[in-house]
């Protein structure tokens, strides 16, 4: 059951990205280009997504355990450290260069393969580099 719901959530999430044109790097770069031809539509996307997600979080706080799992697996780190800042800065630079963040980048393998294949291979390589640097 949880697998089916997870698939539906993935489909909804992907469909939402495409409908709001987050999957199109031209739109994302237009949003980031606040000093040029600024396209503010992604503020609406973020505000809507955060609001509904917040509602979900409020509901989850009233549950003792998740509906279909034994326990919560939520992020517990509260540290604001150099790792968080450096990592987010590197991510921001990479995002600004192409207009792809991880979700839209994955969809680009189908939507825009001549770019998407290179982006995703490098995305996996970057994640693997971190994994091997930090394995115990």
């Amino acid at each position: 059951m949880l697998m089916l719901i997870t698939l539906v959530c993935g489909l909804l999430f992907g469909f939402g990205l495409a409908l709001s044109e987050m999957t199109n790097p031209a739109v994302v770069i237009g949003f980031l280009d606040i000093f040029g031809h600024w396209n503010p539509s992604l503020i609406i996307v973020m505000a809507a997504a955060v609001s509904v997600s917040m509602l979900g979080y409020k509901i989850s706080k009233k549950q003792s355990v998740p509906l279909l799992a034994d326990s919560w697996s939520l992020p517990t780190t509260r540290l604001i450290d150099r790792k968080l800042l450096t990592g987010s800065a590197l991510f921001g630079i990479g995002w600004g260069l192409s207009g792809y963040c991880p979700g839209p980048g994955l969809t680009a393998v189908i939507n825009n393969p001549q770019e998407g294949i290179y982006f995703v291979l490098a995305l996996v390589a970057g994640s693997a580099l971190y994994q091997f640097q930090n394995k115990k």
Binding site: L90, F91, W95, P102, G126, S127
Partner: peptide, 11 residues
């Protein structure tokens, strides 16, 4: 871009 996004989001 992919390398920066891949590594940065992990860090």
């Amino acid at each position: 871009s992919g390398l920066l996004v891949g590594y940065g989001t992990r860090l």
